[in-house]
Design a protein around this nucleic acid. Structure first.
Length: 275
DNA sequence: GTCCATGTTCTTTA
DNA sequence: CTAAAGAACATGGA
């Protein structure tokens, strides 16, 4: 579910509900969602206060009052919600954190559920983490020169390069397809053969696409919801993603679908001709 | 039964 | 050795 716009929307809805709240108790019903394996997450969390919640790439990074940090990755089907304690616990809920009473008498619970379990919780500790040094720069503040330098290093198709979190952090299948359409670039174009103009256009397309998606609180295809349980609305505005066979909103040509890097890739063969 | 799915990582191939 | 392609992971819906 979650690419940058979805993850950032989750963070924005978590923050007012959790920052400053003390963790009263923790229920971890599956140990195997925690990395490193065997880490005693329950003990490390209980009694702590949540100081900050931020996004880095597709990661949701929590900072505690003792300076320890951990992050949650939503994988494909992960959901992080804050609900009233009386709300029924959905199947595949792997972690529940009691953050105490706010306005509801029964108190609030932070719940992490993830049917496919591609997501999980990574304990970072209190080191000034070079954990994310392998991660690429944030696309919303990326400069065209930076993007150009990174794309010059690979012969892969631009679609595959942009999906790589070490190149740019936060893009996934939806927003790469949408950004390439907005830039008029064919997904098979070799990354290192794009012109300076194309890269500048791509960099702008990525930003405008992500900002529009953020304004609509992300895309809900199936599972995605924010921390309040609300779905996103950007899926209605997709120009190519999941629109194979439908008419291009610009030129009426049927949207094409190919498989790249094992993923569905959607594009307009007329608007995205170059490669 | 089949195929497909918003992601990442490990293995295999060139 | 490195880069790139492919498989695997787990569950559910069409």
């Amino acid at each position: 579910m979650p690419e940058l716009p979805e993850v950032q929307t989750v963070v924005a809805t978590l923050r007012p509900r959790l920052i400053g709240r003390k963790i009263r108790s923790v229920t971890l019903s599956r140990q195997d969602i925690v990395t490193p394996a065997g880490h005693d997450l329950v003990t490390c969390l209980t009694g702590r206060t949540i100081r900050d919640i931020a996004r880095r790439g597709k990661r949701i990074v929590f900072t505690l009052d003792d300076a320890n940090r951990f992050y949650i990755h939503l994988g494909m089907t992960g959901q992080l919600t804050v609900v009233d304690a009386t709300t029924a616990v959905a199947p595949h809920t792997h972690l529940e954190i009691d953050v105490g009473a706010f306005d509801a008498e029964a108190g609030s619970r932070l719940r992490f559920r993830d049917p496919r379990r591609f997501g999980g919780i990574w304990w970072l500790g209190n080191e000034d983490g070079e954990d994310d040094h392998k991660m690429g720069p944030e696309p919303l503040t990326l400069r065209a020169s930076q993007l150009a330098a990174r794309l010059a290093k690979t012969t892969r198709a631009i679609k595959n390069a942009l999906m790589d979190q070490r190149v740019v952090a936060g893009l996934g299948n939806i927003y790469v397809d949408e950004s390439l359409f907005a830039a008029g670039i064919h997904p098979l174009s070799p990354a290192n053969e794009l012109s300076i103009d194309q890269i500048a256009r791509l960099n702008r397309a990525i930003k405008t696409t992500l900002r529009r998606a953020l304004r609509h609180r992300g895309s809900t295809l199936r599972d995605y919801m924010d921390a309040d349980g609300a779905a996103g609305g950007f899926q209605k505005l997709h120009r190519v993603y999941d629109r194979a066979g439908e008419k291009c909103r610009t030129c009426k040509t049927p949207i094409d679908r190919i498989v790249l890097g094992g993923r569905s890739t959607h594009f307009c063969p007329k608007c995205q001709r170059t490669h």
